[in-house]
Design a protein around this nucleic acid. Structure first.
Lengths: 341, 341
DNA sequence: TTGTAAGCGTTATCAC
DNA sequence: GTGATAACGCTTACAA
């Protein structure tokens, strides 16, 4: 029974195709891979045989012979927050178009998981990896580097790991937000930054502080959280808004944080943007879902994914040997959540 | 140079480990797989050798010998809409915990893509598949069924493909929404359903209509769209709200559609819930992001993913041979977007 | 133009 | 306890 089952589940192989088509394994291989000489006659018989049992060449056996696996890995902190969901989606789609299959790995900000994933990807003999690590920690990924696996850092650079990076200028984005609020007349500006140790968030805070400093200002408070979700922003803002004097504006280092702050304001009966301006970062779809619609710095999320795929593809084809840093453009999008004081 | 490169990129193999540890391939294999007799001495030498070159067994070669690949596929219509993003995430996490690697495939509602993905998954010799197809179309997936690949349908049944399904009772969910609005005094109720041909959406519409019929009512209009995004709902609602007489309530068959409708109302200066009640379906995080927060039917999205993984795991271990239909519970969540007329 | 045979990395079988 | 060896499915010299 076990044997019977195995047989049923077993897919045909190249030998079986050869038998069905009354030819040899080599000829079948030649047809499949479209190389070498094959007569029209043999080709037709083989194609018929392949279709007749819905045969698919065993990818593992192929890579065993030295062909690239056409498998790639994408390591992201999570998948269920909008920004990374969209990023993962655009990456997966772009790889599919190039004939690659993607392992999307959600590392949940844990080094143990990162390490486990790296091991699995190596075992699958992936051709390349796109990586965004929660922290700048390089350790879990060094086995990839040591094997010369082509790697592209996305969303944040990974110095010491790879010299190819696709991201945005988060520092500059931070200055855009601060300047916008200053122009609107705000002087008492607070910042909500979460998750705390994420490099992009740190850069955004720094940028905002730098722009404030140019006007002789500094943030009335910088509140840090640990999670990348609405609740974190809401909690931090609730605390912050109950202090006196209250800030007249809040910068969230992500839209999620900013929207959380908006909810805190509603809970406390504070009018946005009448009594309080709020701005975010990323321009996820939800930014224009909320009412009032959120002023934010727009990041070309899909393009970032696509560019990273393009770069990795170049590396895997040996067309890119040098260090490259792609900085995609940011844009301030003014909506209804910020106003003159 | 090509050869040199290849060598560099090449990872060590079991033979190399055997040399380093001064033993045979067989003993190395025994250590790795923890079966058969190995002396403590040999074991230690092998483990040291493995660590020294960061060796990872070639997964493809293993499956060539007949071991399961511990690879699974998940076919979803998309990844960048919140519901499927969360579903994909919970599935991937649950599989990781079981030692499986997941191919997340975003089929973009296209049969060509579905077919291409099925071919790729078959070539990778995946052990099982979780599938949610946009339509009830079985054709692209029959090669999986023909090979006896364990399959679980998720979010919607796939009759003729698999008898194992994890979903919710969408019809019942539809009745919950209609009853809620009727209780609030609404009689002029419109429905916005998108994407049109999605089976869950159809069921939700049917459920709502059935509940209305019980009270001698029927929807003033059912508007259909084709996309699963905010814009579709907004467009449909804008049209619908400009007719006279205007409905006093709108049921969206998804939160996305409902939030789109909310934006249409804002654009037209219609107060929600004062002049118009709006309710959605799914309870994605965004449902409580919007203001007013959205009344909706809550679907246990993460649990659905986890249960599907559990079922597939059972099938792959041969513990589940029969048909199973898991229906997870729905719950009406009343928030601020619906009110008495 | 076609077929034979070796070898990719692994594990199971069997002999020692 | 340990080590040869064959076999998994495939591609590629090389021979015919």
């Amino acid at each position: 029974m076990s044997a019977g089952k195995k047989f049923e589940a077993m897919s045909g192989n190249i030998k079986k195709i050869a038998e069905l088509a009354q030819t040899s394994k080599s000829s079948v291989s030649r047809v499949i891979n479209n190389n070498g000489y094959v007569s029209a006659d043999v080709r037709e018989r083989v194609e018929k045989a392949i279709a007749s049992i819905n045969y698919h060449p065993n990818a593992g056996a192929r890579t065993l012979r030295g062909s690239p696996s056409r498998l790639v890995g994408v390591l992201l902190p999570s998948l269920d927050v909008p920004f990374f969901g969209i990023l993962a989606h655009s990456i997966e789609q772009a790889f599919f178009a190039l004939g690659y299959q993607t392992f999307i790995c959600s590392t949940a900000e844990s080094q143990d998981r990162e390490q486990a994933y790296v091991g699995m990807l190596l075992a699958q003999r992936i051709d390349g990896v796109i990586v965004a690590s929660s922290r700048q920690e390089v350790d879990p990924f060094t086995p990839l580097r040591d094997r010369n696996i082509p790697m592209v850092a996305i969303d944040r650079p990974m110095p010491g790991l790879t010299d190819v990076c696709v991201h945005v200028d988060n520092h500059y984005g931070g200055t855009l937000l601060a300047k916008h609020l200053i122009e609107l007349g705000h002087r008492e500006i607070a910042i909500i930054s979460t998750p705390r140790h994420s490099e992009p968030m740190i850069q955004r805070v720094n940028g905002a502080c730098a722009a404030l400093a140019e006007h002789g200002l500094k943030p009335v408070q910088i509140a840090y959280g640990n999670e990348h979700n609405l609740g974190a922003g809401r909690r931090l803002a609730t605390k912050l808004l109950q202090k006196t004097p209250r800030p007249t504006a809040i910068i969230g280092t992500s839209d999620t944080a900013a929207i959380g702050a908006m909810h805190a304001a509603v809970d406390l009966g504070i009018n946005v943007p009448g009594d309080l301006s709020i701005a975010g970062f990323d321009d996820i779809p939800e930014a224009s879902y909320v009412l009032p619609r959120l002023t934010t710095v727009s990041q070309p999320t899909r393009k970032i994914g696509e560019r990273a795929v393009h770069r990795l593809h170049q590396m895997m084809s040996g067309e890119l040997e040098l260090a490259v840093e792609d900085r995609l453009p940011l844009k301030l999008v003014v909506r209804q959540s910020t106003a003159k004081i």
